[in-house]
């Protein structure tokens, strides 16, 4: 399974490295979203600083939708999903490989967006351990849930519009928990951010385990 995951992740990242969709389209889009949030709150700088974690994770969510859509358009463009189904690859390996590839792209994007938050919103990053841990676990959750719903939507006619409709509400707990964890890390709230990290961990574990078990059935429906 791990070998299959590495093979699929390597393939997806190699494709992404050549197509540069994440670099040339998703990352600029995420920064534009952040900029637009900045315009919306421009008159109220303190509020912008307070809201920065939430705006950051909203930008990650929007970008994650694009990354997931891109990950499955690779397979549907020339019916490559059939080739995957006809291979000896374990579905769990395909799932974990796709999650790893999406997560790797999202992590890079999150670093870029964090820089954007510092520059545009004049936020001061602190609590590095909690920030990094919650970012890593949130990314795993977003990628895992995204790949599950991406596979679910692949065979459907209106998949481009259906995926955001289905996935955004599912990711609401991640946005909420990650925002609260970051607010705690940045000293914007007095709550214990590590509790929110535990919630993020539960979400990621459920979707990673569920996806690994159920991805074979999802591939059959595509």
């Amino acid at each position: 399974m791990w070998r299959d995951a590495a093979l699929v992740a390597g393939k997806d990242l190699r494709i992404e490295g050549r197509a540069k969709v994440a670099v040339n389209q998703v990352a600029p889009y995420a920064l534009v979203v952040l900029l637009l949030f900045g315009f919306a709150f421009d008159q109220d700088k303190p509020l912008l600083v307070q809201a920065a974690p939430g705006l950051y994770w909203m930008a990650v969510l929007f970008s994650g939708l694009l990354a997931v859509q891109r990950s499955f358009s690779l397979e549907s463009a020339d019916a490559a999903m059939d080739a995957l189904r006809l291979s000896r690859l374990e579905p769990a390996g395909v799932f974990l490989g796709k999650v790893a590839a999406v997560a790797a792209q999202l992590l890079l994007l999150e670093v870029l967006l964090a820089l954007g938050v510092v520059v545009l919103f004049q936020s001061r990053l602190s609590g590095a351990a909690l920030l990094a841990a919650s970012a890593a676990v949130s990314t795993a959750g977003v990628a895992a849930a995204g790949v599950v719903y991406g596979a679910l939507c692949t065979g459907l006619r209106a998949r481009e519009t259906l995926l955001p409709l289905l996935l955004a509400p599912v990711l609401a707990p991640v946005v909420l928990a990650a925002t609260e964890a970051w607010r705690s890390a940045l000293g914007l709230s007095r709550g214990d951010g590590w509790h929110w990290l535990a919630l993020l961990g539960c979400f990621a574990a459920v979707y990673l385990a569920g996806g690994a078990v159920g991805f074979g059935a999802l591939m059959e429906e595509t």
């Binding site: 393939k11 190699r14 494709i15 050549r18 690779l74 020339d78 490559a80 080739a83 006809l86």
Partner: peptide
């Protein structure tokens, strides 16, 4: 399925991978 080779109407290729990388991926899979 692993015992069967199917060439459908579409080719099942990845446009961004090279010719060799496409075949290598199938062989390894």
């Amino acid at each position: 399925r692993p015992l069967v080779g199917l060439l459908g109407h579409k080719n099942g290729l990845y446009d961004e991978l090279t010719t060799e990388q496409n075949v290598r991926f199938v062989a390894r899979a």
